[in-house]
Simulated assay, not measured.
Amino acid sequence: MRSHQTKMMILVALFAAITAVCAQISFSIGPVPFTLQVLAISLTGMLLGRRWGTVSVIVYLLLGVMGAPVFAGYQGGLQAIAGKTGGYLLAFIPAVYVIGLILERGKISVWKAFLANLLGLLIIYAIGASHLKLILNLSWEQAFLFGVMPFIIPDLIKIVFASSLGVIILKRLVSAGFPVQTKHMQKNTA
């Protein structure tokens, strides 16, 4: 039990770091930068599950809120959460939880992973665009045009990649005896 928790805490820290690195691979295309965070969140939910994935995202967000430059553009501090992209950041919590929840039940497949990641992406868009609308005083149409539309195709590509890669990694981790999400999932992934 203790060994499992230690391994999972290491993975929590690793995926918080991966999310931070993916945030720095960015460029601006309007009020919301293009990053690889959706890829990181998808893999976090898939590989760590709802419980540990959520903990990893919370660790990432707390590091940022405390001032560590882990958000896009090496930003950190509470102002990043209160700013125009804060809704997207906060949406990572329910998104990773839902991705993990779906994938912890039943057999894992790339198709199921894609659908879970798509739902997670829709959660990110809904919360992020709503926050963007409020912060910048935009119409719903403007919030969609600035905060969702430019990202749809790239994000779909990211979740297809994450779904395929995640299933491969899950199968290899399970065959190597590494703890993955839940024991129920271990039986159904092999």
Rank of each mutant, 00 (worst) to 15 (best):
R2K: 11
Q5V: 04
T6L: 07
K7C: 00
M9Q: 00
I10Y: 00
I10S: 00
V12I: 11
L14M: 11
L14W: 00
A16Y: 01
A17D: 01
T19E: 09
A23R: 03
A23M: 07
G30C: 04
G30N: 03
F34R: 05
L36M: 13
I41L: 04
S42H: 03
M46K: 02
M46V: 12
L47P: 04
L47S: 03
G49L: 02
R50S: 13
W52E: 08
G53E: 02
T54L: 09
T54C: 08
V55P: 00
V57W: 03
I58T: 11
I58C: 08
I58E: 06
L62Y: 02
G67T: 08
F71T: 10
A72Y: 05
A72Q: 08
G73T: 12
G73N: 15
Y74N: 13
G76I: 04
Q79H: 13
Q79C: 06
A80Y: 03
A80N: 10
I81M: 09
I81C: 06
I81V: 15
G83Q: 06
T85I: 07
G86E: 10
Y88Q: 08
A91L: 10
F92R: 03
I93D: 09
P94I: 13
A95D: 09
Y97G: 11
V98N: 10
V98A: 14
G100P: 05
G100I: 08
L101H: 13
I102G: 14
L103G: 09
G106H: 07
G106C: 10
S109C: 08
V110Y: 06
K112H: 10
L115W: 15
A116E: 15
L119S: 11
G120H: 07
L121I: 02
L121K: 01
L122I: 12
I123R: 02
Y125R: 04
A129F: 02
A129E: 01
S130I: 05
S130F: 10
H131Y: 12
H131D: 11
L132Q: 04
K133S: 07
L134S: 14
I135V: 15
I135Y: 10
I135N: 07
L136D: 09
L136F: 02
L138V: 05
W140K: 03
E141Y: 12
F144K: 03
L145G: 00
L145K: 09
L145W: 05
F146L: 10
G147S: 04
G147P: 02
F151L: 01
F151M: 03
I153H: 00
D155G: 01
L156F: 08
I157L: 13
K158R: 02
I159D: 05
V160L: 14
F161C: 12
L165N: 10
G166N: 09
I168D: 11
L170V: 12
L173T: 08
S175A: 15
A176L: 14
G177M: 09
F178Q: 12
F178L: 15
V180F: 06
Q181Y: 03
M185P: 02
Q186E: 15
Q186R: 14
K187I: 14
K187V: 13
N188V: 07
N188E: 14
A190E: 13
A190I: 13
